[in-house]
Nucleic acid binder design. Structure first.
Length: 196
DNA sequence: ACACAGATACTCT
DNA sequence: GAGTATCTGTGTC
């Protein structure tokens, strides 16, 4: 079943861990494209130098993060890729979870076409890759995650906390003393991780 | 198995 | 104008 919006109105690190094993679903041209979430990163708002909303930076781009949890935050990066996040916490607390990798489940041929790649392992193992595979673009920024075209389901997969690996986040070297915080979470042993 | 450069355009200073 | 929560192809060991 679809996760209720209340799922997202909780501390960001809890939401991040609880997202592992859930199924991200995108309805694209009437077809279900989906995958099990295997890797995420938490971005902790005002006090987090790696976060776009650090110190309350409020711009056209970051505006979504200030809304109540349960919306999509999709931003464009490196002139080529999109990254998909879920906004967490209550209104006014600009925090989010970046979805970094999926295990592809439904609509694999369509994902292969959207990516221009065959290999299952190259389909959704990275934030830019999975956004491309699920056709997550600017038009899906700031939509509620109980909408028709984009939502997250609980398919009953349970990940024990013993099987969750915590590591520093990827690509946030600019964040100085916050760069090494262990805010990246992934399913131990999964083949569908962006990097080990 | 790494390591590095180039692509490419939006966002904010 | 500078920097970017990335990916890919190419080169070298």
């Amino acid at each position: 079943m679809k996760l209720p919006l209340s799922f997202y109105l909780r501390p960001t690190q809890k939401v991040a861990k609880d997202l592992l094993g859930k199924t991200l679903v995108r309805i694209f041209e009437g077809q279900r494209l989906s995958g099990i979430i295997t890797e995420v990163e938490a971005y902790l708002g005002l006090d987090d130098k790696a976060c776009h909303s650090y110190l309350g930076r409020r711009t056209a781009r970051t505006e979504v993060m200030f809304a109540a949890g349960g919306r999509s935050y999709i931003y464009f990066i490196y002139g080529m890729y999109n990254c998909f996040n879920v906004v967490t916490e209550k209104e006014g607390r600009p925090e989010a979870v970046l979805i970094r990798a999926l295990e592809p489940v439904e609509g694999i041929p369509t994902m292969q076409h959207l990516r221009g790649k065959e290999s299952l392992k190259d389909l959704t193992t990275g934030p830019g890759k999975l956004a491309q595979a699920l056709a997550l673009t600017k038009t899906l920024n700031n939509v509620p995650l109980d909408s028709e075209e984009l939502f997250i389901e609980d398919a009953g997969v349970r990940i024990s906390s013993q099987n969750i690996v915590r590591r520093p986040r990827i690509g946030v070297g600019y964040a100085e003393e916050h760069a090494e915080l262990p805010l990246r979470f992934y399913i131990g042993g999964s083949q569908f991780i962006s990097k080990l």
